[in-house]
Structures are given as C-alpha cells and as structure tokens.
Design a binder for these strands. Sequence first.
DNA 1: GAGCACTGC
Length: 767
Amino acid sequence: MSQEIQQFRATLPINEFKQEILKQIQENTFIIITGDTGSGKSTQLPQYLLDDEEFRLNICQKRKKFLEERVEEKEQPKVQGFLSKKLKPFVPEDRINSTDLKIVVTQPRRMAAISMAKRVAFERNQNLGIEVGYSIRFDNSTTNTTQLRYVTDGILVRECLQDKDLTGYDVVILDEAHERSLYTDVLFALVKTAAKRRKGSLKVIITSATLNINIFKNYFEGCPYVKVHGKSFPVEVKYAEHNITQQKRNHDAVNAAIRMHLHEGPGDILVFLPGSEDCEVCRKFCYERLAEVLNSGVEVPSVLLYTLYGSQTSEDQSQVFQRADEHTRKIIFCTNIAETSLTIDNIGFVVDTGYVKQKVYNPRTGMDSLIIQPISKTQAIQRTGRAGRTQAGKCYRLFSKQFYESLSEHTTAEIMRVNLASVMLLLKSMGIDDVVRFEFMEQPTQEAILQSLRQLYLIQAIDEDGQITPMGYEMSRYPLEPSYAKALITSKMMECSNEMSAIVAILSTESIWQRITRVDVDGYQKLQEIQSQHADPAGDHLSLLKIFSEWKQATFNEQFAKDTLLNLRSLKQADNIRQQLQQLVEGTSKKKCSQFYDQDYLYKLFRKQKDSKKWNINESIKLALCSGFYFNTARKMHNGEDTYLMVYPEGTVVDTDPQSVYTVIQQYPETVIFTELGGTSQVRGVMKLISEINIEWVKPYFSNMVKVDLFKLARIEFQQRGRDAVQERRQKKIQEQEKQKDLEQKQKLEKHQLYKARFEQRKKVKM
DNA sequence: GAGCACTGC
C-alpha cells in the first residue's frame, strides 16, 4: 500500500518543484506558491517540510534563540484589561527546547480542513490526531503531539489573540489565499507582523491560484514565487454576440443548455445562475422546453435535470453527485456554490450567465444589501475551469467579448464589503491601536473604519480616545459581532443569559425555518400559518426563542421539526453554538463587570424594576438587547403602518421585513429596535429581527450618538508623524482611481462607437 | 412597496 502511495505522490505536478520550493523556503521568510487545483500543493507541501531533517533542525534552532531572547526581554502586551485573564503573554516553555516542527495550514472551509487532514494522515499511514490533525469550530482532532494542523482560517485568528507571535508554530501556510476571506485578509496582516518579530524563525507560505499574485508580491515585499502547474484540460470559450437582458437571462440559459445537450458529445452541463429561485425557475422551464422539442419530432437523448444551491437540504444536494447511467446527461442549474465550494465530477460543459448575487455593506447607513452584479474576470475563469477537470470541455458565456473585457479584474475582497466592527475590536484587543493606519493588504475605506469605530464607541468597547476598554476586551472573547457580545454580557448581569445565548445562537445560523419559495403555494401558506401561531407580540427575538425552546422541550424531536416546518440542520447548529456561548458567559465575571455596570443607565433601570410585579424576564432580555443595539432604534411613522423612522442617522426611513412577526400579526408597535438592516434596493432599508421596546429605556443614549468625535476616536492626532506616508498613499490611490476612470471612459466610448456602427449598418441594410 | 449568494469563529 505505502509503495502505491509513494508512486502516486511522485506523479503529482508539485513533485517536480520539491527541491526548488525547499531551497526558497530555507532562504526566505515569505514565499508564494501558485498553482491550480490538482497540483497537490495543499497535501504535499507540508509533508516535504516534515520530512526534511535539515530544515527542521535549522528552524528549531532559530526558534530557540528567539524565544530565549524574548523571555529575557520579558515582553508584555502594550495594554492589558483587568477583565480578561487570557491576555497574559504566551510563554511556551516547552517550545524553547522542542525539536518538533509545528506546521499550521489554514483553509477557508471546514470540509476542506477535515478532508485534507484525513488524506495526509492516510498517506503517512497514521491515525488522525497523532502527527496530523484538524481543528475547526466544535471539532478538534489535534493533540499536543500533533505536528501538522489543518485549521479553518478563523481558528488561527482566534489563536493569534492569545499568542500574537504565533510561537506555537514554525511554519504557517495560508492555503487558497486568492479566495480572500475576511479572516485570511486579517491573517495576512497578523502573520506579516509576527514573522517580522520572529526574526526568521517563522516561515510563511502563501498558496494561491495562478491569478492576482502581484498584489501578494507587493504586500510581502517582492518575495519569491514558485509556479506549479495543475492537472486540467483545455476548455474552449465561446461568447454570445449580444449581452443578455435580465428578463431573458433564464430563458437564454436554458436554451443554451438544451442546444449543448442536443449537439455536443458526452459530459454533464453546469449552468451558473445568480439565485436559488432562478435555479428552480430554469429547471421548470427546461422541462417545458424539452417537451416542446420532443413534440416537434426532434429526437432528445435521455437527460436528468437538477438544481444545486446552499439552502437546500443535504439530501437534495447529494442527489446531484449520484452518477447517472452512461447514456444519460445531467444538466445542473446552480448558484455560486459550484464555483469553489462543491466540485462535481464529469462536467464537460459550462453555461455562464455572468452574474452573481453579492452582499454589499454601506457603512454610511449600516445597511447590508444583496444585489445582482456582474462577475469578475477571475470568477468567469474559475467557472470556465469547472468544465475541464476530467475532460476537454466547452464554456458558453452568455455575454459578449466586450462585456468580458469590461469586467473588473478580481472579485472585491470580503474585507472591503463588510461591517468592520469585529475586525477593529480584534486588532485593538491585540494591542494594535492605530487601526486607521494599520497595513492591510487592501485598505478598507476610511469611512468604513470610522463607522466601525463609532459603533464600538457607542457600545463602550472603546473610549472617546479610541482606546479599548475592559468591556471591549471582554467582548473580544466572544466569536460574535461586538453588539451581540455586548447584549450577551449585559444579559449575564440582568439574569437572562440562558435565554440570550439561545437567541444569539439562533441569529448566528441561517434561518431556523425551512426555506419555502413562493412557487410552492400550499407550503408557503402553511408556513405562514405556523409562524403566526408561534408569533409573540414581544418581537422576533422572543418568537424565535419560543419556537426553539419548544423544539428542545420536544426533546430535539425530528418529527416535531418536520411538522412545524423547521430546519433541523440549523436547529442543531444553533444548539451547538448556544452551548459554546454559555461556556463563555460562565467565564465572564459578574463581580468584575459590575465596576462597569454600576454606572450604566440600563442596568440601573433593571435593578429598579426587577422586583416590581409587572416585570418579567422578557423585559430583561429586551433591555440587554438595547445595550448592544440602541443605535438601531426606530419609531413608527403614521403615514404608513409598517414604515419607521430611525433615530439616527437623522431622516432615515426604514420598512418592516415581510418575514417579521409584526408583519405576520399585522400589528406595528410605536418604538422598536432591530438587530439587522437589509434590503435589495440600496435606497431604502428593511428592518430585520425586530422587537418592541419602551422609548424611555434608550432616550438617555440618543445624545451620545450625535456628539461622537470621530477625529479623536480615530486617534488622528496620534498620527502626525506618519502623516506624509498617509498622504503619499492617498495620492497614489487617487492617481490609480483616476487612471481606472480614464480606462473605463475609454472602454465606454469604444463600446458606444461599436453600437453606433452596428446601428448604421443595420440602417443601411434596411434601406 | 420586498422575498436571500457563499463562507467562518
């Protein structure tokens, strides 16, 4: 067996580059390895290092030197909170003399971490956890002896909180770095600073798909890169003559798929669409079209139609992966999920509509909107590649070559499109104060940073000088958005933390209700009936808690979940998270917190009210929610029942979510708070997850919100020394933007001329 | 006048 494995390992494309890679790693701190999937880099690279005796001894020596010097320096973190006990500097005594090489490999997805650890353990003929293991949230297979750990990127970020020099590792491999998840972007910055402090005793390897390596090279100071070829087949790309309109998108996609089915050789067809509803609509339409073709007397070879998207049950998803018989072709209508997360074998053809749904965060309004957008070139190439994994393939793009040229080079990194409050709090809790100047690989907008600081200040995670508070330290322990962490900590003080940890856990998962589309009329009506039966006029948060508790009381019954149209997968996940949160809440000291809460208006209110007869636990839960979300207060406008006016920013009008219990029971309270603002129009927000409150509870906080001194908060006066540098960067950015603008203008003009020429030509023909 | 892509601690 092991000989077989050795032979297999030798055939992997990366094997040819083994010596070169090892040489570069010896000589450099940072190294980039590019190569497409199938090159074997994720599984082989760490093994090359593990098996290289010289490398191991060399790096252990360097590590020993570094740790001895650091212990002598008695380095302390810059600021220390009195609430958090975990912030003592990490001095791993046993690491000083250890001759074990420790490697960590980060993955953007949990499944990838597990399967790679299993694969490598298998290749080394070992049980999982001895030498090789994985660690993901809620699931850890590693022990003290584990030398190679596959982890999700979020896990390594959490580990950085306790050990910012990453002294527990000798090598960090950031795998699939081109995907640029929020945590990989944070890790780039953390790992870069750690490696510099470690003076050559920490090696950093970044692996990425072949594209956009320049941005990595710039960030890691022109470090060397090794290019490894993958195993893939050529894919022929065809463009449509004209771009499709939104109305005709599904129509054209189905026709393209049918044309391929009738005229092409073997190989399944993958059709990329923006949304799950599009998938269902297309499947239905495809059946109808195929029936029409059949009726017209054309012979149609046997075919199976599937859909594939994230909110399906895993049973529905697994059907797609079952093999059809030799003479039957599969057509799969899918969303972005098939772009990277799920890989289907035997795809020979791809139809690409050129669009995705993407979440965009607007820092000014604090609103998340889900918008249909054109894909990036990188995405188009990725989608195309899905046709060339097992055979030479074809990709039909439902847009013109010009449209492709006009697409942006890369997908906008996540860090550029999310609320940065938790990232900023993370940095502050690690002693990085000057977040405005913090060097990310790609700089988020100043506005986004300032708005997140504002939010952190409003929930007292940082003080008016931008310095992290003990409360902020406490919040950073929780794997939650800071506002949820605040609500949870407050709930401990207000004696309702069991309830709050359940609520927050439910909100951390996808909907606990089954997703039923409007196409399913009966199901949709039934869902609405059940929802109204369980609706609690106290609000969405308490209604969710109620249904969750009922499921728990029914002893986690599967049938109960089915009957009440609940999503069992989300329920189980929510309960898992609830347990984790409860453990964290136990670690929060009520006594120490009271130093803060004794001054707190909401807490005083709680103390005053809690002995009165009218008071019940629901009120406490709502007060705790207010402590994290009071800036999301809205009051009813009387021109339209479900239209509300936010207290801040002034003049912001918001609607009620049609899914909210208040829409279901058709009662709209005077004053509400909400925990999420969303929508699809970017113009007007929709309040999601709403609870009725008493305006008197939050009134004393309103003046805070108006007089936030962002200048002070951002510690701008601390930056005088570095002002020139900032100015220079800003200038450069403006120049780049202008260049980009010019380019776009030029492209627009060219496009216009092209259309004009075509129009003239057609006119001529008609004449 | 609104209905939801994908991850992750």
